[in-house]
Design a protein around this nucleic acid. Sequence first.
DNA 1: CTGAAAGCGCTAACAG
DNA 2: CTGTTAGCGCTTTCAG
Lengths: 333, 333
Amino acid sequence: MRITIKDVAREANVSIATVSRVINRKDKVKEETRLKIMKAIEKLNFIPDYHARTMVQKKTKMIGFMPPELANGYWSELSDVIQDALWKKGYALLVASHNMDEEKINSILDLFQERNVDGIILGPLTSRKNIYLEKSIENLRNRRVALVTLQGNNIPGITSVDVDHLGGAMSAVQYLINSGHEKIAYIGAVSASREREFGYRNALTFNHIPINEEIVILTDYIENFTEFGYEAAGKLVSRKKFTAIFCGNDLIAFGVIKALKEMGVLIPEDVSIVGFDDISSSKIISPMLTTIKQPIKEIGSTVVDVLLDQMSAETGSITKKIVLPTELIIRET
Amino acid sequence: MRITIKDVAREANVSIATVSRVINRKDKVKEETRLKIMKAIEKLNFIPDYHARTMVQKKTKMIGFMPPELANGYWSELSDVIQDALWKKGYALLVASHNMDEEKINSILDLFQERNVDGIILGPLTSRKNIYLEKSIENLRNRRVALVTLQGNNIPGITSVDVDHLGGAMSAVQYLINSGHEKIAYIGAVSASREREFGYRNALTFNHIPINEEIVILTDYIENFTEFGYEAAGKLVSRKKFTAIFCGNDLIAFGVIKALKEMGVLIPEDVSIVGFDDISSSKIISPMLTTIKQPIKEIGSTVVDVLLDQMSAETGSITKKIVLPTELIIRET
DNA sequence: CTGAAAGCGCTAACAG
DNA sequence: CTGTTAGCGCTTTCAG
């Protein structure tokens, strides 16, 4: 059925070892025999069996990627970048989104172990304590699987790549303050990034503006950020005590914008809005969203670099925390 | 280093064959020994090596998915659906987007072959003739790899799952006509779906409205649909001869909306717009986009069903073309 | 019900 | 430069 190295060897009248040599282009092989073998490979349409090779080499050239979801500008854009960067280095990407479902997280990790991925890129995980997860991670580490985490879940001992949420949030709020706002509301999700909330609080405090908890709306992880923003904006308006809103991410901001428009609130005349992430839709919504841009390309390439570094390092490299800068993108809101 | 079936066998004082039996829950094993082995597995944290298993079983439980890109609402939403459906059936997804790059398409297909995926879900491919691709596909078919294509590339002999682009486009244009429009423009990409353009033409013809080629703007595949829509709208306005625009997809429509707004054209008072796809951003843009909805969930589950069917069928099943219906979603534009 | 042994397809010493 | 051979970790007859 399947064409194997044996068939090629027979066809070319050499031993399987020699065939192996030419497909791995390692040891020297006489040009003449190389050509002969190449021809046989061509003729038989031979593609070496990855699994057999893997079994002896112990390298799968496969990286597991576990984002919370794909159907969301931020993660899908990042996936593309990561996939592309990895591809260029000869690695394939096994993608499995977990939707913050604990059971799925565990089973994905099991799958990654079973399939022997060389490395894993973790997205944010549920903050709840998960014994099984901890055990899996320890296992993974014992087996020297490279691990990197995106959007720092601060799992001890794992190198993380993330942006400066705190700083980004502070600059967003500072911008609002510089524009003359004092009553600035915050709408955000705790699970996604607590630091953005802290940045908000810090900036206000730093400017001697008291924090009014009435206009701080938080939620845990939710499926649909946009809907959450829409509803939160509704609540906020009924409290009428703000002239600007800093949103935990762009999707939330989209919901907010929609709600405000429906209620006849003018943006930015009545209320200014700043988001976070700068996903591609931010440019197409109207008014165009002012937001904190995450350097997605750099995040993707950095995470890949870090991962590959870790895999090539003989001895376990030390745990780092890599923080990338954000940038304020001023648009219309 | 790695825990193998041997370690478990030793720990439980049985042969490796028996261990294999319990992890595969096939042959009968005495309950007592089963328990003993389970305990050993637990204790040693044993996870069977997938590659070794695959080598003898010839099934990888892995499906390759090759969309044009991920960073686009349509494909990322679909990926999530497919991944989830497959996951439930015990399959992992190997994702690789090709960005319409011919070389990458070829190399991805090679990778899929080398890694022995059980099935492949193809996205739209370049329309240009690609000998290498044809050969790969033939190879794949010879090796009985299940193949399904999304957004019908009409590769002969491959079952496709797609929506009714023609019908959807016709209903979009018909809706516009019913709303009193006669001068309806079309902006679309040829590669994505020629049928949408045909639907546009058909609907006009069917209603005895002559087609004005001046307000039909086409392009080949482009990286950024939104930008294309933005520019196309600019050209269109200078020609001033339309009261409605049917866009080949939502992203294009977003660009159009942005351009019209900037030029002070009111939507829908001056110009009505209908898109195609109903990606999630369509609801957050303002005004909310009237569009043709693709049933993404159904597309995803259908494609998975078809694929699994094909894999379980002993004899090569016949090539089908599955067409799913679309739905007109009337919103504000 | 359980063990022994023969591969699966390939790589990596080890000889020649 | 090239061939022989011993595994990689697991499943699967075939005996017992």
